[in-house]
Write a protein that binds this DNA or RNA. Structure first.
Lengths: 174, 174
DNA sequence: ACATTATAGTTAGGAAGCTAACTATGTCAA
DNA sequence: TTGACATAGTTAGCTTCCTAACTATAATGT
């Protein structure tokens, strides 16, 4: 889970948006405004999450791998599966696992059935680390989101889904 | 503007969330769900934006600098101001400006009034580049966001503001 | 006036993505 | 069975961010 984007500390004023809209008549002012707003809040959330995790000596990418492993019944998975679920390349996953293995939070287990493959297993230390981080993370997240009631959370997800459905328009060959 | 985060291709199922909620009673399931949903859509938007810009040979960071310069009456600013408005460090801004200057899209102008300072000026080529990119960007963004009507866009921004107000809870010393 | 402090920009070194290429192993079909 | 292709993981090299340290210049206060 790695979002990188400009923080957009300086969201455009309505005046600036209109100036741009004059030069570029295709601009849909409220679309741009909502889009930038969304990116800015998400980035700030991501940065805050990093700060929260770093107090426990974790980085977002490694933390996410631990969670994916804990989700498994056997607390075990393969680098390929982890990469796919985390949305990073296998090369990147190699680096994340290297870091976690050095910290003793996961271990590589070589299998006999398919000698190309490696199993990644959450260690006891890894579970202990999660048990230290997750309650803190959950408590803080509860407070962070307490401004939205259940109905609003459902609405938010619905609107996010609508935007998500439009994302291909950004990249489509015209 | 640089968001880096896991893509979370694999958002947790309700079942997984409840399993975690058993071990970690502080978990607020709908809070986690909305939070991850938000990060995921924002990340996908950021990736799509990168793809859109890369067709014009631009990267998000450099593109954003061009826009900040175009916002100025004089099409000129300083590295410090640009860094502050873009939400990156001055060191990072040095790199972005280096790249843009090599491409001839901006130029460094040394001033006499304060010899520590440099003015960054959008060149004609830079404006031409923006005039090529922005209509494409605006057209695509209009399509991407067309699933939300005006009322929904306002609602979305309000909810984002509510979340934004809670972000300090994620990092606050307890 | 001059020592201290602040500011502007850059440089150096590290983190963690990415793509592309590589090794080793497995699969499948002629 | 063996040649072609597919898959798992790693490595190498690139990018662009970051922090910390550095140089040069300006502002401030005694």
């Amino acid at each position: 889970m790695f979002l990188i984007m400009l923080e957009l500390k300086d969201l455009p004023t309505t005046g600036v948006l209109h100036k741009f809209a004059e030069r570029y008549p295709d601009a849909d002012i409220t679309a741009v405004s909502s889009f930038l707003h969304l990116l800015r809040v998400a980035t700030d959330l991501s940065i805050a999450l990093d700060a929260c995790l770093s107090k426990h000596g974790l980085l977002q990418g490694r933390w996410w791998v631990l969670i994916l492993l804990m989700r498994e019944e056997s607390q075990t998975s393969t680098p390929s599966m982890l990469a796919s679920k985390a949305g990073v390349t296998r090369a990147t996953m190699t680096g994340l696992i290297d870091g976690l293995e050095q910290g003793g939070l996961v271990e590589r287990v070589f299998t006999k059935s398919d000698r190309r493959s490696v199993l990644i297993h959450l260690t006891v230390a890894g579970q202990v680390k999660l048990d230290a981080v997750m309650p803190d993370y959950y408590q803080r997240l509860r407070l962070c989101m307490k401004g939205l009631n259940e109905a609003q959370r459902i609405q938010l997800e619905q609107m996010l889904d609508l935007i998500n459905a439009g994302i291909p328009e950004l990249t489509k060959q015209k």
